[in-house]
Design a protein around this nucleic acid. Sequence first.
DNA 1: TGGACGCTGCTTACATACAAGACCTGCCAC
DNA 2: GTGGCAGGTCTTGTATGTAAGCAGCGTCCA
Lengths: 236, 236
Amino acid sequence: MGQASTRSNRSVVYETLRRKVLTLELPPGASLSENELAAALGVSRTPVRESLILLGEEGLVRVFPKVGSFVSRVDAERVADAQFLREAVELAAFDDIPETLDPDVIAELRANLEQQREPGLDIERFFALDEAFHHGLLRLSGHGRAWSTVVAAKGHLDRARRLGLHETNGVGRFVDEHHAILDAVVSGDISSARDSLRSHLRAVFDDIEKTRRRSPELFAADDGTVPVRRSIAVWE
Amino acid sequence: MGQASTRSNRSVVYETLRRKVLTLELPPGASLSENELAAALGVSRTPVRESLILLGEEGLVRVFPKVGSFVSRVDAERVADAQFLREAVELAAFDDIPETLDPDVIAELRANLEQQREPGLDIERFFALDEAFHHGLLRLSGHGRAWSTVVAAKGHLDRARRLGLHETNGVGRFVDEHHAILDAVVSGDISSARDSLRSHLRAVFDDIEKTRRRSPELFAADDGTVPVRRSIAVWE
DNA sequence: TGGACGCTGCTTACATACAAGACCTGCCAC
DNA sequence: GTGGCAGGTCTTGTATGTAAGCAGCGTCCA
């Protein structure tokens, strides 16, 4: 594939596919044929297959034995599960925030928020910054390693969110909330920080729910029905 | 392998290996050669390899490229992470317990507790009942699907616990706590149920910590050091 | 017209062959 | 004795071959 030899092909394939699924470049229902993906990515079926298995475990892909693999539908139930998990972890972490905050992490969070204010922020950049911000919050309480669990949940949330949010219009509100959370943390008002974080996470979820009501056709029950074969173009 | 053809070989291999790791039948540091496992299980390397990848994602196995795969060390840091995650999820679920409880689930939980009281309870049976009990509690709040996340965490906790707990001596206390939790839930005192559940989970964790202090050699930092090749017999 | 049946082409599941790197061991030079 | 190098053998990573199952479509028959 031409990438540095320090990374396995499987890692590259996995991350490539995951990114394309999360950005909806590979939309829900898209067919993910091992052969086609292998050819498109210039590798054999093995790393592709292993990546699909991992994505299946994550719930982003459904593998139907002997039939095909498909990008999973955006399922409202799964999105709600993800929201519950994320909220539980991030709020619980706040209970363990120490008296004296790690100045490095605080500096990183402040710098992050600066960038969230930059004009011309595109949606991909915002999602990346948002992710780093919430990860930083977890690290403040010494629970940074729980982030990987949140990431798995966050994937479903972001995918649902993207369905209705293709520009950064209205993102400013979330940036404001990030500031409020960090300010509360720094000032030592953990209780207020908790409330701010909770309402922030809920606001994101409400945003998703609003999208779902406005465009229910984008969401679909993941009820095990097999998508029509090759119903959606696979590779761009 | 002889199992019913309705289940894939990979599922069988994965579950077999996972069980052996969790029960310490495959102890921390044990070598997991793809070739040897494939021969021992009567399948090819493919399903074995895919299982190892999944177990690696779960943190129960470490795969060193071109060197070997090994059962991961019981790492105190990872155990603490698991405890944090589990506590966060189970406590958050209690906030969503509805006024009227699902009678089927309640009946199931009561029956479960009956069995926990049975004399001659062995450790494996207790772990299974404990697992079903906590899963049931999650279902009461409609968050049963979050159980899979807790399971991943619980694996690390159980493994640590088994290191010091090889009989059910002292398990009675945990059974009592289960009763207290369920009684509080049924009586509608969610706040008390929360407190009981929290102290229950903490007690289990303290139990692990006590084991760690008593037998620190059982725990080891998972610092990336490669175990000596074939240092521990692989298959029984 | 409608239903059943078989063929064809696709898919994943599994098995195996090959490649490439890491470790250990033993020999050899000093 | 000791350092270093080479080779053999292990490992996982990747590629490819084989098997088996499902779907869709066309055909044939009633």
